[in-house]
Design a protein around this nucleic acid. Structure first.
Lengths: 349, 349
DNA sequence: CTGAAAGCGCTTACAG
DNA sequence: CTGAAAGCGCTTACAG
């Protein structure tokens, strides 16, 4: 420690005024005459004074800080959403306390606890697990507003939510394939169970998208086949393997939907390595409009999520909630639409 | 506000002990008997007590929070470095306060000020401008350790730094091209001036890489040509245009180095649109080993930066500095090596 | 091991 | 407009 630096008392003394007066001049609250203000500001500058935000926050009850909890900042999806959040909250005078859970529920619990103890004014959470919301409910109970993004969590009906209509997004993608004449349409997904029977899992994007896949097939009068569902872990290599398995089937699919951008990189690679021409021999659809999707040949047809907007909406919602103070309003739910962008990986040249 | 919840005083009263005792039991410091601890813990649980970190930090002088200032979290480079930082600092009990400057120096100044007022224990900064370090110097003077990453800043000799040897990285890439027989080697860069004469600019990665480009040409006995230097703004479209201009020259380059991953996406696209076959008609080298670089055909030769490690090293360095307390040690400088990964965009199939 | 008191650095009523 | 006092919720010596 280089000591704590000068305090308001030191500034007040140097300026020859009371502590309260110095505080008013420096903090921009209450009434201060121009002359006094100048004297105080000069003294503060001379001493190199900086406000102690801790002390201020303890009294005002506001830290002007929000917490953001995601599973992985390095994932472009969350990085982009995070940018959306900061772009909205920063101009409003809020800083962001960031936590990375790696998808671990315990890490998420700890993050929420620590943030709550640091007295953040609210939190935005992309949850690690859809089934466990007790810690979030607890935070809300303690007066910390919670906005859920991307994933719903069971047992936290009080939380505001900003999500994407994933069922519709996936269904639209499948409908596009059906329209092109495909009947054997496979899917590469990280949804843990083939049939999304578990109500808890069913809240997560991958599971919801799988539901959309089934719905669209049903709509088209096509029977779904277990064989055509390639389950992968959430990484590129696993998606590669799952895709290879699908392509090696006796009666392989003629089209494939990947429920996520990470999985899509693995799948695209697999199709290439297998030597199949897109879209003639295999049609492929991914998620998210990342730069690479228009650099590959053919370009990848994708479902474009409004990721940045997901962040800005969540940020705004949280700011509203914070401004609202204690008024117990009903939770606010926003569901954004994704958009199919058809490109060469499905459209015949 | 839902009120402030129970305080330590409330817990102490409920447990029938003194405030100091309750604090010791809950805070894990000092001596408390097992029986007392249990009583206090029970009372705390019953009341739903949560420590007020603000009050604690004000006394202990430590917030267990570090600041991280970057120009753009949505850029995969910074997102990955940030992940490295959190992976190291979070297990050590530190939270991360994140700020996004968008490359604006004033935004950076404000971020540093606010973080300093919030009493972060230190900051990691990817600076917006190489020429202006007064605010950083000021922070260090106020007792906030600063670790600079990726970019050096003039006028802050006290700051620790973790950077990448960009001159060597670019030179190695050019040497690779020379070895393959290229003599007309162009570069797509965002370095503002063609000749990196300005000492300030010269500290930034793009400028340093341009210097490496010149050095490698000189080494190979090749005269550099102004025409072959394509200057772009820091976005894909601008890089596309700059590349197109280079390719349209009467005597176009046979090889191109992009000094950054964002620029590489634009350049790759331009080469494709121009209808040039890689590597036969044009060789291309980019930066950073992103997923897309192995999905395109041909795969892109790249200079791989140890981005994640940049973050972990910076995190560790800052933790050391914080643990070190007031002891004024000399600044610590780490320079990491990048690695050339030769692929199809330069290697004849 | 436990307690009573002081104090961290501010802001907020309450007087003047 | 300005000041003296109280208080936010903790931890830290200092006694016992």
């Amino acid at each position: 420690m280089t000591g704590n630096g000068p305090s308001l008392i030191d500034v007040a003394r140097a300026a020859g005024v009371a502590t309260a007066t110095a505080g008013r001049a420096l903090g921009g609250y209450g009434q201060v005459s121009e002359r006094t203000r100048e004297r105080v500001l000069a003294a503060a500058a001379e001493l190199g004074y900086r406000t102690n935000g801790l002390a201020r926050s303890m009294i005002t009850g506001s830290t002007q800080t929000i917490g953001v909890v995601v599973t992985d900042v390095a994932n472009p999806f969350f990085a982009t959403a995070l940018r959306g959040i900061t772009d909205v909250t920063h101009p409003a005078g809020f800083e962001v306390l960031l936590a990375n859970t790696g998808g671990d529920l315990d890490a998420e619990r700890r993050a929420i606890t620590v943030m709550s103890e640091k007295r953040v004014d609210g939190v935005i959470v992309a949850a690690a697990q859809p089934g466990e919301g007790a810690h979030l409910k607890h935070a809300i109970g303690a007066g910390v507003p919670v906005v859920l993004i991307d994933r719903l969590v069971r047992g936290v009906p009080e939380a505001d939510t900003v999500t994407i209509d994933n069922e519709h997004a996936a269904a639209e993608a499948v409908a596009h394939l059906v329209e092109l004449g495909h009947r054997r349409i496979g899917v590469v997904t990280e949804a843990a169970s083939r049939v999304p029977s578990s109500r808890k899992r069913g809240l997560f994007p991958s599971a919801v998208r799988l539901r959309g896949y089934f719905a669209a097939l049903r709509e088209a009068g096509i029977a779904s086949e277990e064989d055509l569902i390639g389950v992968a872990r959430y990484d590129r290599e696993s998606a590669y393997d799952a895709t290879m398995r699908l392509l090696a089937l006796p009666a392989p699919p003629t089209a494939l939907l990947c429920t996520d951008n990470v999985l899509a990189t693995g799948a695209y690679r697999a199709v290439q390595d297998r030597g199949l021409r897109m879209p003639e021999e295999l049609s492929l659809i991914g998620f998210d409009d990342e730069p690479w999707t228009t650099l590959v040949r053919p370009e990848l047809t994708i479902v474009e999520q409004p990721t940045y907007e997901l962040g800005t909406r969540a940020g705004r919602q949280l700011l509203d909630r914070i401004a609202d103070g204690g008024a117990t309003r009903r939770p606010h739910h926003v569901e954004l639409r994704a958009k199919l962008v058809a490109r060469g990986s499905t459209l015949p040249g």
